[in-house]
Design a protein around this nucleic acid. Structure first.
Length: 345
DNA sequence: AATGCGGGGCT
DNA sequence: AGCCCAGCATT
């Protein structure tokens, strides 16, 4: 071998059992791991799309208490489903989960029997389908998510590996018995040891096989993605108040915050009293939302929401912030713990 | 292949 | 102030 050639791809098979044992000894106790039914695994994997496990845990617990099985979920109102999802983000996931539950229920309540069936459900893509098959059914294959992509990129010292190539290259890491331990171990390793910055290689069961570590700078893999700068948008929220009620509208089902309720927004300033703007940071833009106190009746479709209704309806983060601000500044009555809400010292 | 889609935790 | 997360749907 020439002296400047890259080291050969490591033989990973000897690491399969150490990896599985590492997982059994060190894995975090997460609720969806307690009872690996297809329903629980499916709900967890959809919640975990682009969302950290620690964030998901309380949502998953509440969800399972509220919608313990697919029939219960299918029978629920979309409003209740979105309310249970409020704060988790990417609300299309909740609507897809709900639609898929109704599809499954309409088919007699049985989950799909093969990969193609799972993949056909809304909200189930390549990763989620692979994860459900591996984790809930024990099928032997690697599900490639962001964690596995990073672990694999470092293990092979490949700046931008393709998912299919990675699944094949990492397959030898699945143990002979209960291969799902290996699949989940790779995910767990990426989440807790092989982290994006400052990986804990001393704690890694694969350290001796890792080409990126041998090179000296494992955090250099995978290659960082260029991200466009996020623009700032100024928009206006119409504030109509009637007693303790606030006028709210439902957002269109698709698009940003689809299906959630909130104050009517527009690109142009309506007539009225302008209040201090509320800033909210989304992934792809920064919103400066300017509340405007309006006189007269609202127009268009919507409803009046008193404090109780505001607690029940699904709202986005910025609308929650806005309502809290209006209440704190005395523009809107809140639901006081005792006595009339409008009573002020 | 590129873009839209949340919110939060960490550095 | 970035970065990125147990990704998917759409174009």
């Amino acid at each position: 071998m020439p002296p400047d050639a890259a080291p050969p791809t490591p033989d990973l098979a000897p690491y399969a059992e150490p990896l599985a044992h590492w997982f059994e000894a060190r894995a975090r106790a997460l609720p969806w791991r307690e009872d690996r039914t297809p329903y629980r695994t499916w709900v967890a994997e959809v919640m975990l799309q682009q969302t950290r496990a620690a964030t998901v845990v309380p949502y998953f617990e509440r969800w399972m208490a509220r919608f313990p099985d697919v029939a219960t979920l299918a029978a629920a109102d979309e409003e209740a489903v979105l309310a249970a999802w409020e704060g988790l983000g990417y609300y299309r996931r909740a609507r897809a989960l709900h639609r898929a539950a109704r599809t499954v229920a309409a088919a007699g309540g049985a989950f799909p029997g093969d990969a193609a069936g799972w993949r056909a459900l809304p909200g189930v893509g390549p990763y989620t389908a692979a994860a459900i098959r591996a984790l809930a059914y024990g099928e032997r294959h690697v599900a490639v998510d962001g964690n596995v992509r990073r672990v694999g990129a470092r293990l092979l010292a490949d700046p931008a590996p393709r998912d299919a190539d990675l699944a094949a290259a990492l397959a030898p890491l699945l143990p002979t018995d209960r291969p799902e331990r290996g699949t989940e171990a790779l995910i767990e390793l990426g989440a807790t040891v092989c982290t994006p910055r400052d990986p804990a290689c001393d704690a890694c069961p694969l350290a001796n096989a890792c080409r990126a570590r041998a090179e000296g700078d494992p955090a250099a893999y995978p290659a960082p993605k260029a991200r466009p700068a996020v623009p700032t948008r100024r928009r206006y929220a119409a504030v109509h108040v009637d007693g303790d009620a606030l006028w709210v509208v439902r957002r269109p089902p698709d698009g940003l915050l689809g299906g959630l309720w909130g104050l009517p927004q527009g690109d142009d300033p309506p007539a009225g009293t302008t209040l201090a703007p509320v800033r909210h940071v989304y992934s792809h833009f920064v919103l400066d939302l300017v509340p405007v106190l309006r006189d007269g009746p609202p127009d268009g479709d919507g409803r009046w929401a008193d404090p109780d209704a505001r607690a029940q309806l699904p709202f986005s983060g910025v609308d929650r912030t806005l309502v809290a601000r209006l209440e704190a500044d005395g523009h809107l009555a809140s639901a006081g713990p005792a006595g009339p809400a409008t009573l002020r010292p």
